[in-house]
Design a protein around this nucleic acid. Structure first.
Lengths: 216, 216
DNA sequence: TAGATTGTTAATCGATTAACAATC
DNA sequence: TAGATTGTTAATCGATTAACAATC
C-alpha cells in the first residue's frame, strides 16, 4: 500500500474533507459507484478544479478520465486522511444544554473523537450518565483526566469559568482544546486550540445579509 | 457624524470583530480607558499590524500615537459595524439539546439576533416555552414565519430533515439560514447561508494535533 | 475515434506581514 | 525633544481559479 504524506494541504482544504466524505457516503448509499469532480462540485457549490486539487491530496488511486473517481475508494482515503479510524479520547467540561448536545451526539464516534467522560460543578448531576458517559465533579478534573489519559478537552462552560477549566485540562495532560466558550483562551505553545466562535459566524452572516440587501 | 462605508473588509476581518469587541468590553470593565493595538494583539494572539488594519475599517476616530485607541469609542464603532444595535428577528427549528442550548443562550440579544419563536415536531413540547420563546408545531412553520416576519432561520434538526426545513423557511420568507445540521444545504442564490460545520473544525483540530506531535 | 474528465502548471485573487514615514 | 504608537504602501504568503495537455 502506498503511503501518502499529506503535505501542503491548506487549512481550508482540510475543513472541506469532511464535506466530501459526507456527500460520498450519501451517494454510496444511493448506489453510486463512480463520481466526477464536477458532480461533487455542483452538489457542494464548489469549483470543480478545487475539488480535484483537494482530492488529489488524499486519493491513493487516480481518478479515471470519463468515469471519474471510485466512490468507495475515495471514502476509504478520506477516512484515513481524517484519522476517523483511530479514535482520540476526549473529555467534556460543562454539562449545560450545549454540553448535553455534544455528549448526546453519536456522530462524533465516526469523526475520530470518543468522549469518555464529562465534568460539571453541579453536585446534582455528578455520577449520573449521559448515554454511557459518566459525569464527574470538576473538583477531580485534573487527576481524572490524567487517569483516563484523554488527549482532547472540550470546553462548554460559561465564559467566566473557561480559562480556569482550560488550565486544569492542560494540567491534566490534554494535547488539544476545543473551546465553545465565547472568549479567547490562553494556552501554552505546545497545546493545539480551536475556538468555536458563534459570534464570528453570526457576524459574517449579518454582513452578508446587509450586503445582499444593499445590492438589490 | 461621519459615515463609514465599510468597504474592502475581508471575511476573516469580519469574524475577528466580535473578538475585539468582547476583549474591549472586558478591559473597559477593568477600568481601562485607552488601549494600544499591540496590547490587543498580544491578548488575542494576533499580529499588531493586522489589528490596526482591522480597526481602521471600523473606527470613526483615529488612534493616537503614544496613547492608542479610546476603549469606549472603539466599542461604539464595533457595535455599529456589527449591527448589534438593530436586532434581526430569527426563528429556530429543532428543539433538541442543541436547539435548547441556543434558545437558552441570552448572549444573542447583544449580538444583533433576536430569536422570536421555535418550532418542533414533538407534540409534547409544542406550545411550551423556553425562556420567553414559544415552541410551535413544525406544521405551521411557513405560515408562522410569514406572520412573524422573521428574517433569519436557525436549523438545529437532524440531518435527514434539514433540507425540508430549509425549504420551508425559505418559503416562509427568511433571508438567511444559519445551519447547524451536518450537511450541505441547497438554497436559492438570493438567500444567505452559513454552515456551522463541527466536523470541519474537528478535522482541523485533529490535523494540527497530528502535525504537532510529528514535529516534536 | 471523440469526448468527457483528469491532473498540473501558471495566473489571479485575497489576506497577512514587513517596512517606514507621520505624529502626538 | 524622544519615543511610543499609528496608518499606509509595498512585499509576501496562501488559496483559488484559469488554461491546457494527458488519457481512458
Amino acid at each position: 500500500m502506498q503511503v501518502k504524506d499529506y503535505k501542503g494541504v491548506s487549512k481550508a482544504a482540510i475543513q472541506r474533507m469532511p464535506k466530501y466524505l459526507r456527500y460520498l457516503l450519501t451517494i454510496k448509499n444511493d448506489g453510486e459507484q463512480n463520481i466526477s469532480s464536477t458532480d461533487i462540485a455542483n452538489a457542494l457549490n464548489l469549483n470543480p478544479v478545487l475539488v480535484r486539487k483537494d482530492l488529489s491530496y488524499v486519493s491513493s488511486v487516480a481518478g479515471k478520465p470519463k468515469t471519474g473517481f471510485s466512490v468507495s475508494e475515495l471514502i476509504v482515503d478520506l477516512k484515513k486522511f481524517l484519522g476517523y479510524n483511530n479514535l482520540n479520547d476526549a473529555v467534556l467540561v460543562g454539562v449545560g444544554h450545549l454540553g448535553k448536545a455534544l455528549l448526546s451526539y453519536s456522530g462524533f464516534n465516526s469523526c475520530g473523537i470518543n468522549i469518555v467522560a464529562a465534568f460539571d460543578n453541579d453536585e446534582l448531576i455528578t455520577d449520573t450518565y449521559i448515554l454511557d458517559k459518566r459525569i464527574f465533579s470538576t473538583k477531580i478534573l485534573e487527576e481524572k483526566v490524567k487517569e483516563l489519559g484523554a488527549k482532547i478537552g472540550i470546553i462548554t462552560v460559561p465564559t467566566k469559568a473557561a480559562q480556569t477549566v482550560c488550565d486544569m485540562l492542560v494540567a491534566g495532560g490534554v494535547k488539544a482544546i476545543w473551546n465553545f466558550a465565547p472568549m479567547h483562551l490562553q494556552v501554552p505553545d505546545e497545546i493545539v486550540i480551536k475556538n468555536e466562535d458563534l459570534a464570528g459566524s453570526l457576524a459574517l452572516l449579518s454582513q452578508k445579509m446587509a450586503n445582499r440587501i444593499e445590492n438589490n
